[in-house]
Amino acid sequence: MSFPSPRAGSGKRLDFNHHGVWAIYRFEIARALRTLVQTLVTPAITTSLYFVVFGAAIGSRLDSLGGVGYGAFIVPGLMMLAIFSESMSNASFGIFFPKFTGTIYEVLSAPISYVEIVIAYVGAAATKSIVLGLTILATASLFVPVHILHPGWMIAFLLVNAVTFSLFGFILGLWATGWEQLQLIPMLVVTPLTFLGGAFYSISMLPPAWQTVSLFNPIVYLISGFRWSFYGTADVRVGLSLAFTLGFFAACLGVVALIFKTGYRLKN
């Protein structure tokens, strides 16, 4: 056999394991590419259906909202809906699955830090959901006149929300001990809050009491800010949206840091 002899103690210190981060990132992207149809084509078709149903059938009977046609109005909401659920499911599955099958042993035994592990998994999940969000945007613009007033802010909101919900998904994946738990929070909490969070309507369309209730839904602030970057109109002040977006991001980051300080649920 011909194994090269190990190079004796090369004194080089490894300060950032970029090969390791890249390996995980590529692994995660490859996983999505294997199921390209499911990852991108399905959402594109679903989006088209939304526009056929909401845009053409219902939207034509609705007044424009703040000067924006209903079809165009729901584009940012649709994108956020996809970003939330895709980031969460990708990141949670990405870390849960190796935990479930046991292949996590390799990551734990590798010279890679927790920060690097998070960068790799969360980075890959965010990448995938951003690509999906942009696919939806592209599909939507085939049906309705989409127009982006503040492209810089649009990208910023997209990026931060994708990373935040990927972090959130990562936490779910670490916490979950079974498949049901993995689905629980996204299905019972995040999706309803998103639907009730003005993804498909302006909360100003609601009766006053419900408007007040809606303001307790943090998702309202995230979607409103994102929509503002498109059309310059918003349900809440954009400064508030920004604060919520960054606050949620910081909270998720903090929880991940706390989890890893204790090695929680990854190591015995």
Binding site: H19, G20, R26, A110, P111
Partner: peptide, 12 residues
């Protein structure tokens, strides 16, 4: 792919 993944993971 999996063997190359391991190599990368270990920083090589």
């Amino acid at each position: 792919a999996t063997v190359n993944f391991s190599r990368g993971l270990f920083g090589k």
